[in-house]
Simulated scan of single mutants.
Amino acid sequence: MPLDSTTKLNSLGFAKAPSETRVVVAMSGGVDSSVVAAELAAQGYDVVGVTLQLYDHGAALAKKGACCAGRDIHDARRVADEMGFPHYVLDYENTFREAVIDEFADSYLGGATPVPCIRCNERVKFRDLLETAKDLDADCMATGHYIQRKMGPNGAELHCAADDARDQSYFLFSTTQEQLDYLRFPLGHLQSKSDTRALAAKYGLGVADKPDSQDICFVPDGDYASVIEKLRPGAAEPGEIVHADGRVLGTHKGVIHYTIGQRRGLGIGGLDEPLYVVKLDTENCRVIVGPKEMLATRVVPVREINWLGDADFHDGPHEISVKVRSTRPPRPAILRPLPDGGAEVELLTPEEGVSPGQACVFYETGTTRVLGGGWIWRGA
Rank of each mutant, 00 (worst) to 15 (best):
S5F: 13
T6G: 08
G13V: 10
G13E: 12
E20V: 09
V25T: 06
V31A: 05
D32S: 01
V47D: 00
L54S: 08
H57P: 06
H57C: 04
L61S: 10
K63Q: 15
K63T: 11
K64A: 15
I73D: 00
R78N: 08
G84T: 07
H87F: 03
Y92S: 00
E93Q: 15
E98N: 11
V100T: 05
T113C: 03
T113R: 06
E122N: 09
D128I: 13
A133Y: 01
C140S: 14
A142H: 00
T143V: 05
T143G: 01
I147C: 08
M151D: 15
M151L: 15
M151C: 10
P153S: 15
A162L: 07
D164P: 08
Q168P: 05
Q168N: 13
S169A: 15
S169N: 08
Y170C: 01
F171D: 00
L180E: 07
R184N: 05
P186F: 02
T196V: 15
T196F: 02
A198Y: 06
A200D: 04
K202Y: 09
Y203L: 04
L205R: 00
V207T: 13
P211F: 07
Q214I: 13
V219W: 01
V219A: 09
E240D: 15
I241Y: 06
A244K: 10
A244V: 14
A244C: 10
H252N: 10
G254H: 08
V255L: 14
I256Q: 02
G265A: 12
L266F: 13
E273D: 15
V289M: 03
L295F: 06
T297I: 12
I305F: 05
G309K: 03
D310E: 15
A311S: 14
D312V: 07
H318E: 11
V324R: 00
P330D: 10
P337C: 11
P337K: 05
P339N: 10
G341D: 06
A343H: 04
L347K: 02
C360Y: 02
C360E: 06
C360N: 03
Y363P: 01
R369V: 06
G372S: 07
G374E: 03
I376H: 01
I376T: 02
G379T: 14
